[in-house]
Simulated assay, not measured.
Amino acid sequence: MFWVLFLLLAWGLTGTACTRLCLAAVRAASVDADVTATGPAHDLTLYEAAFLSGGPARVADVTLVSMARQRRLLLAHTGWATVVDPRGRDEMERSVIGAIGPEGQCRIGPVRARAAGAEAVRRLADGLVRAGLAVPDEAGGTVGAAVRRVRGTVPAVVALGAAALLLPVQSGTPRLLVGLWFGLPLALSLSCLALARIEVHPYSRWASPAGQRLLGTLTRGPAGDERSLLTAVAVDGIRAIGEPELRAALTHRDQPWRE
């Protein structure tokens, strides 16, 4: 009856993962209901839209692109950032300038990493969380993380079931019956994934359901407009940059974030 131990392990993995998914979905729905009742406090800024779309790294990208487009920062396709105007117009720009350092030149990769971890970005994130537009930065607290756990149980249950079927037959238990028993936790995992896909998709790492709806209301303006380009970068990432040299600078092979 060793296969029963495998079955218990399969149920334990499945039950834990599905329970976490249900709890995460309930928390998300509760926060969403509160935000819906009170309404968003303000329209999204570019930095807020960037955080909700891609997290701290995206905020750093938008700041770098904005400064480069205004010729206050030079981003070379070789992967170097050079300060042209050392006066930052807001705290995000000052974070980028501070990340480059007193010499006024640094590799873009470290600059992005330091700017993404700056206190200004953390305050931005905290404000979005308090407004119910961003998910708290808690391990396992998001629907997306819970969905990934449930997905992980599918191959685990299949592997446990296969291992159980390969064991020598004991107590005359038919192999078909053993397979059916393992089919139950597998069916539960797949059902939870299907329901999550219907009810709470897309699974955002950063934006709450209310934040995702607010992102959908952003207007990008006419093509070629500066605000429109920066909004596209905030929402879609550096792939939205139309200038080959600028895009090459931010996608240089030594960058920690690739899109």
Rank of each mutant, 00 (worst) to 15 (best):
V154Y: 10
L229H: 10
I241V: 10
M1Y: 11
V65T: 04
R227F: 07
E245Y: 14
T142S: 15
P110R: 05
A145K: 02
L218H: 02
L9H: 06
D61R: 10
R89F: 08
T219N: 09
V26K: 10
A240I: 03
L7V: 02
V169T: 15
A232W: 07
T19Q: 14
P86H: 09
G98S: 14
P86Y: 08
A17N: 04
P136V: 03
L218Y: 01
W11Y: 14
D32F: 07
G161Q: 02
A131R: 13
Q70E: 15
C22E: 14
T45C: 05
D254W: 08
T219K: 12
A68Y: 00
I100S: 03
Q105A: 14
M92I: 00
H77V: 13
R175L: 11
L73S: 02
A207W: 01
A194D: 07
S228R: 14
R213K: 12
L186C: 09
D32N: 13
A41L: 14
V158E: 15
L52A: 09
E259M: 11
R20Y: 07
L64R: 01
R71F: 12
A196P: 08
A60N: 02
D32Y: 06
L5F: 13
E243G: 01
A194R: 14
V169S: 15
D236F: 12
Q255V: 05
A29D: 12
T14P: 05
V154L: 08
G15V: 11
R71I: 07
E103R: 15
V157S: 06
V135L: 15
G221P: 06
L44C: 07
A113N: 03
P136K: 05
R220M: 11
A159Q: 06
G55Y: 00
S189Y: 06
L186F: 07
T173V: 15
T219G: 14
A240R: 05
V135A: 11
A248K: 06
P202E: 09
T82C: 05
P136N: 05
V147C: 09
L230M: 06
A118M: 02
R205W: 10
D61W: 05
L230Y: 06
E91H: 13
S191F: 14
R239P: 00
V83A: 08
A57I: 00
V59W: 04
I241D: 01
